[in-house]
Design a protein around this nucleic acid. Sequence first.
DNA 1: CGACTGGTTGAGTGGTCTCAAGTCCTGTGG
DNA 2: CCACAGGACTTGAGACCACTCAACCAGTCG
Lengths: 249, 249
Amino acid sequence: MALDGLFHQMEKMKSRDNPSCENCRHRGKSLFGTLCSDDLAQLKPHKKLRQYRRRELLFAQGNVPEGLFCVAAGQVKIFQTGIDGRDQIVRLAGPGDPIGYRALFADEAYNASAEALEESEVCFIDRASVLELLEDKPLFMRRLLQWLCQDLRQAEERMRQFAQKPVRERMAETLVLLAQAFGKKVPGGIQLGIRLTRQELAELAGTVLETAVRCISEMKREKLLRGEGRSLILPDPAALARVARLDLP
Amino acid sequence: MALDGLFHQMEKMKSRDNPSCENCRHRGKSLFGTLCSDDLAQLKPHKKLRQYRRRELLFAQGNVPEGLFCVAAGQVKIFQTGIDGRDQIVRLAGPGDPIGYRALFADEAYNASAEALEESEVCFIDRASVLELLEDKPLFMRRLLQWLCQDLRQAEERMRQFAQKPVRERMAETLVLLAQAFGKKVPGGIQLGIRLTRQELAELAGTVLETAVRCISEMKREKLLRGEGRSLILPDPAALARVARLDLP
DNA sequence: CGACTGGTTGAGTGGTCTCAAGTCCTGTGG
DNA sequence: CCACAGGACTTGAGACCACTCAACCAGTCG
């Protein structure tokens, strides 16, 4: 009995521990890395952990932000839908990454949608609490500023790539960056640790499904890529990076 | 012509009268809109007004930021140079707009260059003073945050346009936005109040000189544009906006 | 088993880019 | 004021890249 009770207790703690940021292993890197335990405790009642299944929307383009999302586990894609229904993935968010903060702080409707790529757990903090944080904690705002600066640099960088590079190079770059961000070392290369359809790869690289497929097939023929079941392996990321003519790093 | 020259003269005198921000008519909208007169007075010794001639560089990609620029008069283009030497204009800055703040606050080298499009006067505030401002004035940081949010939205928006829209639509959009930002009403339409070469229009729209020229010629044939000497007139901006399939407003 | 989703390939077309003339402006120095 | 050099602009021809449409295959799930 006692044991059973203890076990039950542990289970509860696990699921309630996760929702608390104190022990979140992503805390250091995240937006909340500058907050002390007291701050986090204060934040706790205004925070909910939500579960999302693959394909489920966190929010949709045009909605009004009710709060701030922060990924605890899983992967989320943020994308804009164009006039003809074609989607463009703006960025991917993994554990520790905040979502939807731009619209929230600019006090606008979302101009992108967010969708879980896999089973995900996402923290949600209500609007008022976040804004309060912004008022009271200069370091929080500072961190937020850093985040915006990063995103802005990447967005401008990517804008230029889209304007100047052919699809093949953009696809190579996309794969290299995915490998850097979500890659796992496996014998014989780096495996993409994220589940994306060809359609989604196309939307990342800014092209169309068929063209993306052709690029990937071609790269496989050139031994720059290998397919392992559903996921891709990069035997030589450096070679791919040369194909991409990466100009920053 | 003569009128234009006079106007220029007036502009010059105005800005020569007040190198200090207190009376700057762009103060309200600018980054410094939240600062009181005392703050501005304190800032004064760390501030210099610099003159730039057309084509002159404010800073170059790769440089380390020494401070913050803020346009007092004139026009400045911010652009990135690609691997093959092709330039992409990231944005334009007019009176009241800050320049180079992203790199400064992210503590990185510039990843773009800035060049005066015409005779311009630009305020320069040294790095230490700006960072101090950031520490001491929460409202200043808040304003900065807003600015970053705006720029990020535009960058992401533009990224999608580049990925999804054909050149003709992007060029139409570019012209409409230029008209909104720098247009002057003249009999028979709106005239672009900014001096850009076809090359620069191409770099804004993310294409090549020849293609840009062809788009413009075509639009002239369709009466969507008129050329007045060097500058362009939009007889019917709304029609152009339809061509551009503007999806936000 | 059929419906469905995701992946793959082919054929054809049109949009953009490149290269290569030319012409039109404009600022400059005689 | 003119002449001129050089930059800015314009147009054409050709090649190629990327998109569309269409068909087909391989799993997966009810």
